[in-house]
Design a protein around this nucleic acid. Structure first.
Lengths: 211, 211
DNA sequence: ATTGATTTATAAGTAAAACTTACTTACAAA
DNA sequence: TTTGTAAGTAAGTTTTACTTATAAATCAAT
């Protein structure tokens, strides 16, 4: 007689199968509608996993969102980190960093939308694991800037932190319309323009008051 | 005999009393907790107005929020508009505009928080009346920039729209930490730094490659 | 193998909160 | 007086995130 096998030996079946199914279901649903209009019942139905497991595995609905987001972000940070290696010169490093950010926003619109619209408003985000990962990312830039200032490549009358905030916010805002209407996005062109402004300013004919 | 007058000429008689009480109640509550944790029952209790009138007057809970926000924003836009009058020179105008924005974020933390965190994420914001008012505001800057480019005061290889997005996003991000933790904010200092970056760029020693 | 503990799963239920509905009152115009 | 409209009320309904009680499977150690 056939012993009824619960596990198929071909598929390695990742440990808590339900956990992964839930994450995949949410990812799938986020491509169609925004987080707040996705119900836990829907996630359960789509994943084929019981609703209450969302709470066992992720604490709450938002915990699931963050788990999904964290995985993606961690990957991205690693990639950018790697991509920075071997680049010399503050401006070149900054350009690469900025390009990577534009590229990220262009690549995965679902995650971009979440990060730009869906995450910041909830109380507790700024102490969350997710924000921790984002900080890893932004610290990358802070370091570049601090080195640049110390090395004399960047002006000394602006702190790294301020520049970083302006750059990150500027990129976000530049990208926002396209992300919202799923419009096209051109990382190369955007990087070029952004760096022009960042490095040289908007003043015509260069700096006059150099004292 | 006295002809019964509908309108008392002394007190302009706030037309639908309930409407105003509801708006005031929400304003009051927003000073204590964030929008999503304020319940319609609470708004009703605080205002002394029946819960269902929220829906009659404002469509839904979010409609009430937007009504409150719109009133404040309209006022602010008028104020900035007025403050811009009589200023000559693109850089001076930009500086004033930027200062006004920092000042706004510093002045009323309740509204700043709403605008930065509570409004963007909801679907339909970008077609809302509220966004219309915000656009009035941002258009102000677009005009300044376009004039500056045409007049040769600003470089011609950057479009006004891109610069505007970068500036607005940069300001938001610069201000965000203080708004979230109710920390101090220094509009004068921030304006100075921001304009330094915006006008001259972050490069040390001015522009080298001027060709 | 048997036990016992831990993990995974399920079904049914709860509570809270946004939103509705059906009805009443006030009051001005026709 | 009638009629129409806006303001107000009380009592629902529905949806949805989250719980609980309980069962089945898995695994470790005897």
């Amino acid at each position: 007689m056939n012993k009824p096998e619960k596990k198929d030996p071909d598929t390695p079946l990742p440990k808590p199968s339900g956990r992964i199914k839930l994450a995949n279901a949410l990812r799938h649903l986020l491509a169609q509608k925004d987080f707040s209009s996705i119900t836990t019942a829907e996630i359960s139905r789509t994943s084929g996993v019981n609703e209450s497991l969302i709470y066992r595995y992720f604490g709450d609905k938002r915990g699931l969102l963050h788990a999904v987001l964290d995985e993606y972000l961690e990957n991205f940070v690693k990639q950018v980190n790697w991509g920075m290696k071997g680049i010399e010169g503050t401006k070149n490093k900054l350009r690469k960093f900025i390009w990577s950010t534009f590229y990220f926003y262009d690549q995965d619109r679902v995650f971009s939308k979440i990060l730009l619209l869906e995450v910041r408003n909830y109380p507790g985000y700024f102490t969350s694991e997710t924000y921790g990962i984002v900080k890893q990312y932004t610290n990358l830039m802070t370091e570049i800037l601090e080195q640049g200032i110390k090395a004399g490549e960047l002006r000394k009358d602006l702190e790294a932190r301020s520049i970083r905030q302006i750059v990150l916010g500027g990129i976000e805002h530049l990208v926002l319309p396209a992300v919202i209407n799923d419009g096209p996005l051109d990382p190369d062109g955007l990087t070029e323009k952004f760096c022009l402004l960042l490095f040289e300013g908007i003043q015509a004919g260069g700096i006059k008051n150099n004292g």
